[in-house]
Amino acid sequence: MIHNPLSVNLCNIELKNPVITASGTFACGFEYGKLYDISKLGAISVKGITREKREGNPSPRIAETYGGILNSVGLQNPGVEIFAKNLLPYLETQKIPVIANIAGDTEQDYCYLAERLSNTSVAMIELNISCPNVKEGGMAFGVKPDSVYKITKAVRKYCKKPLMVKLSPNVADIAENAIAAEKGGANAISLINTIKGMAVNAETRRPILKNITGGLSGPAIKPIALRMVWEASRAVKIPIVGMGGIMTATDAVEFMLCGATAVQVGTANLTNPLNASMIIDELRRYVDKNKLKSISDIRGQLITE
C-alpha cells in the first residue's frame, strides 16, 4: 500500500487525513457531495441528532460579526430514526467514517441515543454537551466538571463505539472539564463548540437573532480555541480534536502544534463550500514542503522555550 503521510489514527479509527467537517455546518454531506467528492474527507461529524424531530429556533438564526458568525439554529434535525434510516445509508455509500453528534434534554436521552447509534455503522459518537442554543440540557451538562464526568460515565455504559466528548468553551477552566471527560471514560475530546454571544442592530434597537443570543464561530474565536486545545492537551492523555475558526491548512497545523490529533472545519464550509477540500489539498503540500513522514509528527510540537 502507498504510504499516506496525511493519515491519522483517532481512537483506532484510520482517517485518510485529519480534516473532519464540523457538526451543524455540513448536514450529512449530501449537499456538499454535489460540489466535490466528499469521500476525500477524513471524517464527517453530522448535524446534532436528538431522539425526536426538532424544529429549532425561529429565524433569523444567523448573524455576521467581525470575522465570525453567530448562529441560533437550536439543533433542528429529523430525529434519530430518520437519521438511521434515511440519512446514514447515503454516508455508507461514501465510505467515510461518520461521527454521530448527539444531544438531549436529559441524561437518559444521551444514553438512549448512544445505545441506538451503537447499533449502526457510525464510527464514533460525539457527545454534544455544549450547544448554547437550547434551553434544556445542551450546554447545561457541559459547564461544570462534575456534570461532565457524570454524563460521560453514564453514556459510556451504553456506548459501544469510541466516545468523543465535545466540550464547551463557556466554562471556568477547560483543563478541569477535559480531565472530567477523561475520567468519565471518554476516548477523545473535541473542542471548542461555539461561544455564547449576541449581535445588535443599532438602528432598529433589536437583536439580530430572533433567539437574542447565539453561538459565535469562525476566525474570531480561533485564538480562544487554540488556547483551550493547548490547555486541554496538556491535561489529558486521550486524543484531542481541535476546532474553532479553521479556514486554511495553516490554521489546521496550528491546532495540531497545540496538541490536536485531528481538526474539524465548520464555518469555513459556509464561506466557501470547497474549503474543507482545499484544506486537505493544502495540507498535502505542507507535508511535502516540510518533508514530513506523517502529519502526526507535528502533533504537540509547539516550541515554548
Binding site: 449537499e31 456538499y32 424544529e55 429549532g56 425561529p58 429565524s59 438564526r61 444567523i62 448562529n71 464550509n269
Partner: peptide, 20 residues
Amino acid sequence: RMGCGIGACSVCACATISGN
C-alpha cells in the same frame, strides 16, 4: 438570512404549516 445556501446548515428556516 443564509449560511451555506445549499441546504446543509439549516439556518435559513421558514415557518410553514408542515414545520420549518
